[in-house]
C-alpha cells in the first residue's frame, strides 16, 4: 500500500515541557485516520509540523514521499487542511475566499468552487461576507477550502467544531464519500470519540505527547464495546490514569 504520510521520530518540546516525543507513524492511501487524544496531548503540534506551520526539534515528516521541510511545495501540492481553526478573510465573501485559494492550484474554475460550496451547504451564502458567518458556517468554509483542489490527502484538526448535529452528519458523510469514491486519505484529529468511531477506519492514540497505539477500527470494535472503552484501556495500560 502506498504511504501517504511518513512520520519518523518526530519531537517538539515547548518551554513548558509539553509537546510531542519520538512520534513515528505511517498513514496509507485510503485511510481515514483518527488522531485521538485529550486537550494538550500534542495533536495540533503534530499537525502543524506535518503542514509546515511549525518546525520540529528533530525527526522528519514526508507527505507523498516529499520531505515537508526540504520539498514543501511538492509535499503540499496534493494536500488540503484545516489546522487549529478554520480561517478565512472576514472582509471577503465565501466565493471570493475560495477564488483566492483556487489561484494556487491548476484547473480550478468557478464550477469547482460552486461544487464545493454545494457539498458543504454554503452555496446560498456564497455572496455573504465571512465576517457575518456563524462558527459552523466558518467551519464549512474552511472545509470547502480544504477540499477545493480535490486533494489526495486532507488533514483536519477538529473539523466538527462548531457544527450542529445536522452539520456533523453531513460532514461525516462527505468525508466517507470522498474516501470511498476518490480514495482521498484523511488525517483527522478530534476529542469527540463518538464521531471518530463513526467516521474513521484507523485510530492512533496520543497521550502526553506520546503515541500509545495504532489499530484498525474493525479490530478495536471486535475487542471492545466502544472506541471510548479502547481509549480508556490503552491509557490505563500505559499507567497514566
Amino acid at each position: 500500500m502506498e504511504k501517504v504520510i511518513e512520520i519518523k521520530e518526530l519531537t517538539k518540546i515547548y518551554k513548558n515541557g509539553r509537546g510531542i516525543q519520538n512520534l513515528s507513524l505511517d498513514i496509507y492511501k485510503g485511510d481515514i485516520f483518527g488522531f485521538l487524544g485529550p486537550n494538550g496531548s500534542g495533536k495540533t503540534t503534530a499537525m502543524k509540523i506535518m503542514t509546515g506551520l511549525m518546525k520540529a526539534d528533530s525527526g522528519t515528516v514526508k507527505l507523498f514521499g516529499y520531505n515537508i521541510v526540504d520539498e514543501y511545495e511538492k509535499a503540499m501540492e496534493r494536500v488540503g487542511c484545516i489546522i487549529e481553526t478554520a480561517e478565512s478573510y472576514p472582509y471577503l465573501t465565501a466565493y471570493e475566499n475560495l477564488k483566492l485559494f483556487s489561484r494556487y492550484y491548476k484547473n480550478i474554475d468557478d464550477n469547482r468552487i460552486n461544487e464545493v460550496l454545494e457539498l458543504t451547504g454554503l452555496l446560498r451564502y456564497q455572496n455573504e461576507k465571512a465576517k457575518n458567518f456563524s462558527l459552523g458556517m466558518k467551519q464549512r468554509l474552511g472545509l470547502s477550502a480544504a477540499i477545493l483542489s480535490k486533494p489526495d490527502l486532507v488533514i483536519l484538526d477538529e473539523p466538527l467544531n462548531g457544527l450542529d448535529v445536522e452539520g456533523m452528519i453531513e460532514i461525516r458523510k462527505l468525508i466517507k464519500r470522498l474516501a470511498e469514491t476518490e480514495k482521498t486519505t484523511f488525517f483527522i484529529s478530534s476529542h469527540l470519540i463518538h464521531d471518530v468511531e463513526l467516521t474513521c477506519t484507523r485510530i492512533g492514540i496520543l497521550y502526553e505527547g506520546k503515541l500509545l497505539n495504532v489499530d484498525y477500527m474493525q479490530n478495536i470494535l471486535s475487542n471492545y464495546a466502544t472506541l471510548e472503552n479502547y481509549f480508556i484501556s490503552e491509557v490505563d495500560k500505559n499507567g497514566r490514569i
Binding site: Y72, E84, E87, F101
Partner: peptide, 14 residues
C-alpha cells in the same frame, strides 16, 4: 489575525 496560515498552508514556499 491568524490569517497568515491560510497562505502558508498552500503549495507555495515561504
Amino acid at each position: 489575525h491568524n490569517t497568515m496560515k491560510i497562505t502558508l498552508t498552500r503549495p507555495v514556499s515561504r
